[in-house]
Design a protein around this nucleic acid. Structure first.
Lengths: 228, 228
DNA sequence: CCCCTTTCTTGACTTATGTCAAAGACGGGG
DNA sequence: CCCCGTCTTTGACATAAGTCAAGAAAGGGG
């Protein structure tokens, strides 16, 4: 598969005339990152847009004491690192490849030119940022207004609608990473999973395999109607 | 002052040819909201963009138990309610006028047309959304990785660089609202302010008047190098 | 200028969640 | 298939912050 095919497959660039795809191939920087490798750090200058071609990337913050808060996971076709492209200034968070990942980098100026010439890309990019704002709004709501059992329930219900395999949902990330995504620590997550299992809301079958026994109970936890 | 002058003064529409300003006057909806009036609620359909002409608007979420988390305050010239315009779907949060406010509403389709015709607006809008993402990133970091004294210190230092009046900074919002912005409750905020005063980091002189005595101490709290 | 409502403060108490430490379970590479 | 490093679980404990309740202060309207 050639570079131009990967570019044509990026949702952000869908519906763009073919010649622009060709233009993009001339400026793209094709990069491979190993598991655990840092793509950029908070405070670095961001002079371009990244797109995940394969693998997975996490965007996160770290506190003084080393606690980590994951902001996003990005996979195939998803752009990241766009904030400094449009708002100037520096990256607000870190990006790390959590598995072997292939990433395309598009330098800022060429990308801005593309937007100037193609309102459809501008609208796509606006849609991407707006969805991201929505996601952040939900994360803020979770962190500020819900307890960990509520956040976990929301996540489990979300997973059950996407990555489920005949009622057994499969965690696509480690529990440590899940804790960090939910704004807590592995110990707390572990305890709450155990408590949910004891209350027969879920059944833990296998390290990354969870069965939902009482979907309604989880929903009540997620909305704050019930506490664990 | 005529409607077109207000429109020309909106930063988002700066650098737009005059004829577009005139076009906008034909579609704008001019609205006044009283203090405490709801402009839209979470879950409402959003079919246009709002801009604050005068007064102030808060964007917030509420939990089941009634706790409130403020996401933004918006003042003169700032756009809000844009997420559903670009991402489709519904408002992710509530908007309330916290004082008598004048708000212009631009219907979605006309606004999207404008963007199609003017890449410069698209770029301005991308910059607005990117800055908003940066703000949210900081809020998430605060909520997840810092304690309330750290968040408060960050806010006080921020204020001291903007709204200070010979070393006395003036809170531009009530303490209850500040608590809600910091993701806590008035009681906790009150206690922490008292504690900061006892430690001689600040001096409370008057209901909305605070003097910073130890800027460095606040900075250490804000970065997590020190605890209260 | 004073009353009444709203906002703020303070105290005693509860609780969710973080910390520290140690044991147990996985799982990939040799 | 077994071993070692990593991830996960569990326990005992510490603590930041929320709840409830009551009193104090502030501020706007008559």
């Amino acid at each position: 598969m050639h570079i131009i095919d990967h570019i044509a497959a990026i949702p952000l660039f869908q519906g763009l005339p073919k010649e622009y795809h060709e233009d993009l191939t001339t400026i793209v920087v094709d990069q491979i990152f190993r598991r655990g490798q840092i793509i950029f750090s908070e405070g670095d200058e961001g002079n371009g847009l990244y797109v995940v071609i394969s693998g997975r990337v996490k965007i996160f913050k770290v506190s003084q004491e080393g606690k980590e808060q994951i902001l996003h996971f990005f996979g195939q076709g998803e752009p990241f690192g766009e904030v400094p492209v449009f708002a100037g200034e520096l990256f607000p968070a870190h990006a790390e490849s959590i598995e072997e990942s292939r990433v395309f980098f598009f330098p800022r100026d060429a990308f801005i030119d593309l937007i100037r010439k193609n309102p459809s890309i501008a609208l796509s990019m606006l849609a991407v940022l707006s969805r991201r704002l929505r996601t952040f709004t939900m994360l803020i709501e979770d962190l500020s207004l819900k307890e960990v059992p509520g956040r976990l329930s929301t996540y489990l219900l979300y997973l059950s609608e996407h990555k489920n395999e005949n009622d057994h949902l499969i965690l696509d990330i480690s529990k440590g990473q899940l804790a960090s995504l939910l704004g807590t620590i592995p110990e707390t997550l572990s305890r709450i999973l155990a408590r949910m299992a004891k209350e027969e809301l879920i059944c833990l079958d296998g390290p990354r395999r969870i069965q939902i026994l009482d979907r309604n109970g989880l929903l009540e936890l997620a909305t704050g109607e019930r506490r664990l």
